[in-house]
Simulated assay, not measured.
Amino acid sequence: MIIIILCVILPSRKAESVGITMSPIDEQAIKDRLTKTCPCRVVTRAAIKEAIANGADTLEKVRAATGAMAGSCRGQRCRSSIEGLLEQASWEKDLEI
């Protein structure tokens, strides 16, 4: 448990200095879980990415799956970030083909 906390708190260089190594994928996963893409509804970037991976390929589908863009600002604060994640997922999918 302590090791996990250190990985979250310490930047990778400091974590490595105490014998903890993290891959860039691990670091990104932690950042995704901590980053609130939709602050009104407290929806994390990880939750948005998971919804997209499960087939939510439009803003409306992401909203239905996560509750993002349904808060008091109605998406004014998070829409562009979610559009960016959708575009990134589409681009990554095109690269796989």
Rank of each mutant, 00 (worst) to 15 (best):
S81V: 04
P39M: 05
P24D: 11
Q76H: 11
G19I: 13
R79H: 09
T21A: 13
C78R: 02
I82G: 01
E92G: 00
C38S: 13
A53N: 13
L6M: 13
E87C: 02
A56P: 04
V8Q: 11
S81R: 14
C40P: 01
V18T: 06
I48D: 03
I4W: 11
G75L: 08
C78H: 01
E96N: 09
D32F: 02
V18K: 02
G55A: 08
T58I: 06
Q76F: 09
S23V: 04
A47L: 06
C7Q: 15
A46Q: 15
E27S: 06
D26M: 12
N54L: 12
R77I: 13
R41A: 10
V8D: 06
M69Y: 03
T66A: 10
K31E: 08
P11R: 03
Q76Y: 06
T58Q: 04
R33W: 06
E60F: 09
D57R: 10
G71H: 05
S23T: 14
R41G: 05
I52K: 04
R79W: 01
E83N: 07
C73Q: 08
I4R: 15
I52F: 02
C73G: 11
A68P: 08
A15P: 03
M1Y: 07
I5M: 10
K93S: 08
A15Y: 02
I25G: 05
V42T: 10
T44I: 09
T66G: 11
K93I: 00
C78I: 05
L59Q: 04
E50R: 15
C7Y: 00
I82W: 00
I2C: 07
A68I: 08
E16Q: 09
R41D: 03
I4M: 14
E16F: 04
C38R: 01
C7M: 15
L6H: 11
R13H: 10
A53Y: 00
C7E: 14
T35P: 00
I3E: 09
R33F: 12
I5R: 07
S23F: 09
A47M: 13
A53H: 12
T35K: 12
S23W: 09
A68K: 01
S17I: 02
T58V: 06
R45F: 01
